Amino acid sequence: MRTALVIGTGLIGTSAALALSARGVRVHLADSDHEQARTAASLGAGIEGEPAEAVDLAIVAVPPAHVAATVCDVQRRGLARGVIDVGSVKGGPRREVTEHGGDLTTYLGSHPMSGREQSGPLAATADLFEGRPWVLTPTPGTDTEVLNLALELVSLCGAVPVVMDADDHDRAVALVSHTPQLLSSLVAARLEDAAETDVRLCGQGVRDVTRIAGSDPAMWVDILSANPGPVAEILAQVAADLENTVRSLRELDSAEETQRISGAEGVEALLRRGNAGRARVPGKHGQAPTAYQTVIVLISDQPGELARIFADAGAAGVNIEDVRIEHATGQQAGYVQLNVVPGAVRPLEKALRESGWSLRRQ
């Protein structure tokens, strides 16, 4: 791939353009919002404006509702030898391309499974897709050259190609992406009118659950409008679980012991199902989850504190597998949770104490 056209210079489009430009591909940038395209160009993502002659690959990074029309426009005008879109829904747009008279042989739907809560070109990074799955949904009629260009795009962006049927993809993302977004927003919505004293008690749990609730509502309306059926089906199942859980909690509050026992069993059953589901989420490098143990360190909110902790861990020969920070409310301090393999806990704790760090017992 020597040349590419990116249509839509938001987070995903600009990130792909940055990755391609960094690897020597000549990238042209187009967007209905010319200011956004200029911003992406100023970041080094490419050259603003459509190419004078056909490029190797056009990357359509527009909202799902506009994918089909944009793909067909690219094909009709001969702007590229192949066209790939990066929208989060695949079945509907592909059918719409056919309805609009588009050519499925030179079009391939795809979805990079990566993103951020922020949107727009200023949130873009060239490494956004590093190590992340990138779904490709070719049909039996997809031209081999277009598939190869798509695979090259995925490789240049550092992602991992995953081939799926378009409708299977939509059901999968309804479960692992679209429904979690709504559930996060539902929990966060409870905080909107909560008393200030209550909100100040927020810990890491509520921060984890509500993190993606900060996403752009307009963007998510576009996404959910393109995949409402599968999302509604999963939410209906969640609603049934919620109804059963509410019933179990009511029983726990009962004066009758038999009902309290039944309620406890109902809540425990849900929590155990949650344990089983969580255990299936791929861990580091996509491998099966590892039972890491946590070392908790008190740090002050000063420059260089995290670097010192990692340096001390490295000097002790301990690899930090994962890390998170829990901020202390109203204080210039917090806790760093260092996840390590079980055998590394004692040597890490010993090294950190010798270096003067304060550790907190779990």
Rank of each mutant, 00 (worst) to 15 (best):
I7D: 06
G8S: 06
I12L: 03
G13C: 02
T14M: 00
L18C: 07
L20D: 06
R23W: 07
A30C: 13
D31A: 06
D33M: 06
A40K: 01
S42Y: 08
V55H: 06
P63V: 00
V67E: 04
T70A: 03
C72A: 12
D73F: 05
K90A: 05
E99A: 15
T105H: 11
S110W: 02
G115E: 04
Q118C: 00
A123C: 08
A126W: 01
D127A: 07
L128V: 01
E130I: 05
V146W: 04
L147N: 01
A159S: 11
M164L: 15
H169K: 04
A172P: 02
L182V: 13
G205T: 13
V206G: 06
R211W: 06
I212T: 09
I212W: 04
A213L: 06
A218N: 01
D222A: 08
L224C: 02
A232T: 13
L235F: 03
Q237T: 11
L249A: 14
L249C: 13
T258G: 10
Q259T: 09
G263S: 12
E268I: 03
A269M: 09
G274H: 07
R280N: 12
A288H: 13
P289M: 05
T290G: 08
Y292I: 00
S300R: 14
D301W: 10
Q302I: 03
G304T: 03
E305A: 13
I309L: 14
I309R: 05
F310E: 13
D322A: 14
H327V: 08
T329M: 10
Q331R: 15
Q331A: 15
A333V: 00
Q337L: 15
V340P: 03
V341A: 07
V341M: 08
P342M: 09
P342R: 13
L348D: 10
E349S: 11
L352H: 09
Q362S: 13
